[in-house]
Design a protein around this nucleic acid. Structure first.
Lengths: 218, 218
DNA sequence: TAGATTGTTAATCGATTAACAATC
DNA sequence: TAGATTGTTAATCGATTAACAATC
């Protein structure tokens, strides 16, 4: 790897998508691909793909293109999905339940080692093969297991207090499903927000813009 | 509204966030705010806020700032959340279940009018107050109800065929939770992807970058 | 070797930030 | 009126695209 020092956010956000496309191609048995062909499949420019990849190193070969399996593995290494950081989930409601059962954490660099809830009716139930623990045991658990990431699936109004506590317990990153914004709150703590409500409103805008332009053209 | 003709995507993506912050301020009873103060709360520049808002009109007043309730309502209008487009959900598994019960569609411009699944064990069960219908009845339902948006909560391998069918039934937008990319597939169809796997991998990268830089500084 | 395609530098495009006159 | 803050134009910054020499 050349230099992952200051790679821009747009580049990083495209890496998982490259990874997905390469996995599909790999599974189809395709061995090599040029930046041009990949760009056509993905709806990007070939130039952008080459620029992106060359932030990390020269993985291609002139006249040949890229070896799919090699590039797939390299991007996995760049993302660090082989490391398996320990993650805990806070909140085992509908959303937490879905995420715990639906996502393949182990393919994406994480190991979900604990699920916590403060609702005594939920504590003890099994979610995605893991028994939900009482939030009161969180501190002891963190001291023992040292999880790195917390997945917040709690109502927005409890996000800040929970996050503060988790940072004090050593958490270095949040996958934040609450509508509360956590970024800019801590130094040296990674925050990945999933604001589903924002996403839905963006779709709302797009839909209404579509029907507006219909009216104009009709 | 001045001109929503060609507002850039980054601006649109920030609108729901403005809306959230303004809602919070409104609920706190704050009446007015300057772009400077809002920028500090949100971690943006005042300049950006004024630029963003002036894509749609001059909602502020020199020397005073912005009236919070008015601006909140204006942004709601720009997003079109008062329109209540009909939405259907395809797939009532864990994720669909969580989204149907967890999200306030009615506050975000949508009315979830039907949930469909092809698993006979799920059909007939009640999810978020709505009875899950058999996918076989989807076509009749669409002809009668004319939903505009489909929420895809199905495995990625069925995304393309389902989406094609839904477009033929009049669907004009997708909220796509599958890992399959739907953009660039149709003309005049809005697609909002929620790639949770990509998001998790991005977090993975950030976490590993943090620990890398620890090693360097230590 | 000839053709293909990369890696990389240069040019362009677009988004963000800064500055300031207008004005409440 | 004086102070504050907008709306808007200009300057800067960063990301994307284009071009092409290097080379497999």
């Amino acid at each position: 790897m050349k230099n992952n020092n200051q790679v821009s956010v747009p580049v990083i956000k495209r890496l998982p998508r490259y990874h997905r496309y390469l996995e599909e191609l790999k599974n189809m048995g395709v061995v090599r691909i040029s930046s041009k062909e990949l760009s056509q499949r993905m709806g990007l420019t070939a130039s952008q793909i080459r620029q992106d990849l060359n932030c990390f190193g020269g993985f291609g070969q002139q006249g040949y293109g890229y070896n799919i399996e090699q590039l797939y593995n390299e991007i996995g290494l760049i993302l660090g999905i082989n490391k398996k950081s320990k993650a805990i989930m806070i909140g085992a409601g509908n959303l937490g339940h879905a995420i715990a059962t639906h996502l393949h954490f182990e393919n994406r660099g994480f190991d979900l080692v604990g699920i916590f809830d403060n609702n005594k009716n939920v504590v003890g139930t099994v979610v995605g093969g893991r028994t939900v623990m009482d939030s009161e045991t969180l501190e002891d658990f963190c001291q023992k297991e040292q999880p790195v990431v917390a997945i917040l699936c709690i109502p927005g109004e409890y996000a800040a207090e929970n996050a503060d506590k988790l940072v004090s317990l050593g958490i270095k990153g949040f996958w934040n499903f609450t509508q509360y914004d956590l970024m800019h709150r801590y130094e040296g703590v990674a925050v990945e927000n999933v604001h589903l409500g924002d996403s839905l409103m963006t779709l709302c805008y797009q839909i209404n813009k579509l029907s507006d332009s219909d009216e104009v053209t009709e």
